[in-house]
């Protein structure tokens, strides 16, 4: 039996391109286990580059993130379901959302904003958009760079772990997400991270401040 889920996810992680091998929304346990193991190794490799002490991998969250991205892309390409079924196909993560879960889920979830953009290009009124945006709103670390309703974003889990916090700030700077950078909670931390070199690293941030 071919491992469509595993093939898609490993290709996504290794080449940053998403290939769907068939119209399949459900996959075998074996396939899931393969993805879990693969993501664990990926997490280990990636966490080498995390500052401070990286949290250990949360395989369940990683799998959930992979499933969400996979299912979302399936739904973008081959839709046979009704709108009401969408929340069932893309369930909400129902375990505790700590730094480990956020970082593990991010392995795949970071590609969701691009998938969302694709959906928007095809049909801006698609019901799928609301479902996915809802996910991103909750997993906002993966949604950095994608315009979200910043007022409802919850930073408690992010700031609770210094590794998580540093990674969050790094990604805001890397993606140059002006919307996040202007949040009062983040602004100071971002300026602190860049120190006196903010003009070198992120010129626009400073010029925007002077306009205010």
């Amino acid at each position: 039996m071919p491992y469509h889920f595993y093939n898609t996810i490993s290709q996504l992680r290794q080449n940053e391109e998403l290939v769907l091998y068939d119209r399949v929304l459900h996959f075998s346990e074996e396939d899931e286990q393969l993805v879990k193991d693969f993501l664990k190794i990926e997490y280990e490799t990636e966490s080498l580059n995390y500052p401070f002490t990286p949290p250990s991998c949360n395989a369940a969250a990683a799998l959930w993130g992979a499933k969400t991205v996979y299912t979302a892309c399936q739904l973008i390409l081959y839709r046979e379901n009704k709108e009401a079924e969408l929340p069932l196909l893309l369930p909400v993560y129902n375990n505790e959302m700590d730094a480990a879960a956020i970082l593990s889920a991010d392995l795949c979830l970071r590609f969701l904003p691009q998938a969302l953009q694709q959906t928007k290009n095809i049909d801006p009124d698609d019901a799928l958009i609301a479902v996915l945006e809802n996910h991103l709103q909750q997993w906002h670390y993966s949604g950095i760079g994608y315009v979200l309703n910043a007022a409802t974003v919850n930073f408690d889990t992010v700031f609770a772990n210094e590794c998580m916090q540093q990674l969050y700030i790094d990604r805001v700077i890397q993606k140059k997400d002006m919307q996040r950078a202007m949040l009062p909670l983040l602004q100071k931390k971002i300026t602190a991270a860049m120190g006196i070199y903010s003009a070198t690293f992120w010129k626009e941030l400073n010029s925007d401040k002077t306009h205010e």
């Binding site: 580059n49 500052p51 401070f52 210094e162 540093q166 700030i169 790094d170 700077i173 890397q174 991270a193 860049m194 120190g195 070199y197 690293f201």
Partner: peptide, 8 residues
């Protein structure tokens, strides 16, 4: 370095 912002 181990605790530095990646941009640095």
């Amino acid at each position: 370095i181990l605790n530095a912002p990646s941009i640095r």
